[in-house]
Write a protein that binds this DNA or RNA. Structure first.
Lengths: 166, 166
DNA sequence: CTGATTGCAAATGCTTTGCACGCCA
DNA sequence: TGGCGTGCAAAGCATTTGCAATCAG
């Protein structure tokens, strides 16, 4: 995966008359070492944690580059943070469900949903180009039994906590 | 409509131990005089255009209040602007289609879509609470005939122009 | 009267940018 | 060698906040 990704980056970089650099390679390498969604600060922390030196400016610039290269997608998780999703390369069509109990994000896809969206769009006289669906939901298990495995996992792993809507 | 809306605001304000003020009433009145989506600056301009005096701070504070009162919903149109939709009071369930040719936003709803979303959510072990769907699409008429009525209307009316994704 | 509301300006927080230096092709 | 890339600090922008004056109930 990692090699594939770097290759794709370098293809894009070459095609645009840009240059291959250490920072870009390292940033890409760190991003795709996990499938987790992340914010700029998340990424910045991961970089520092691995002793990789790259300024915030470079991180911002590289993220913009990756979005242009369609290797990364900005998603809206319902909070005020710009979040990046590295999973669209493997999975070009997917949606997000955000648990309002623990904040955990579940990716899912469904062909019926895609078909229906396309139909509705066509009926309105358009051709669908891109789609963004986010479902905010609460955990049935938590409601039923008073405990939610995701909630517990979230606490243990210090994942993104419940979205603070500012 | 206008009276209904003011009434609802005042109900909420009263229920929270807050106070009825001129600024709030005027802002609400201006917002619901149209069904158009708007940004803070749009609203601020409309206020000034009608000679209504309210500081930006008050406008921001009132918008926050209206969102809390569930009279207004923040929506994501795919640009970097916080946009407000005043139509959820009349139409609690609807989605947005954004034309990438002219930027025009079309609201639509479909019961099948809602059902499918709920099914998918339940299958994942959650109960849907809230949903946000945005389709970006291009106009078939423009592709076919080279002209798009919305595009023309957009130019004539100086509506929101094509989204600059910065 | 009392505490909520307002306006102003200052502060915030995220992101972008200008510039001088360094490095890839 | 030419110019793209980087880091730094400053600038930008949208939004929030502290404070003193004002206003609603």
């Amino acid at each position: 995966m990692n090699e594939l990704v770097k290759e794709r980056l370098n293809e894009y970089v070459a095609s645009q008359g840009l240059r291959q650099t250490n920072q870009r390679n390292e940033i890409v390498s760190v991003i795709y070492s996990e499938t987790e969604h992340f914010t700029v600060e998340d990424l910045f922390d991961r970089l520092r944690g691995q002793g990789i030196k790259a300024s915030r400016a470079t991180v911002y610039r590289t993220l913009k580059l990756l979005v242009e290269a369609e290797m990364l997608v900005e998603i809206d998780l319902g909070d005020d943070l710009t979040t990046y999703d590295p999973n669209f390369m493997e999975n070009p069509v997917h949606n997000h469900l955000v648990c309002i109990d623990c904040g955990k994000v579940t990716e899912f896809e469904d062909s019926h949903l895609e078909t229906l969206n396309d139909c509705l769009t066509r009926r309105l006289g358009f051709r669908a180009v891109k789609k963004s669906l986010r479902i905010e939901a609460c955990c049935e298990k938590l409601r039923a039994s008073g405990s939610c495995p995701n909630l517990i996992a979230a606490r243990l792993n210090k994942k993104r906590l419940p979205n603070r809507k500012k």
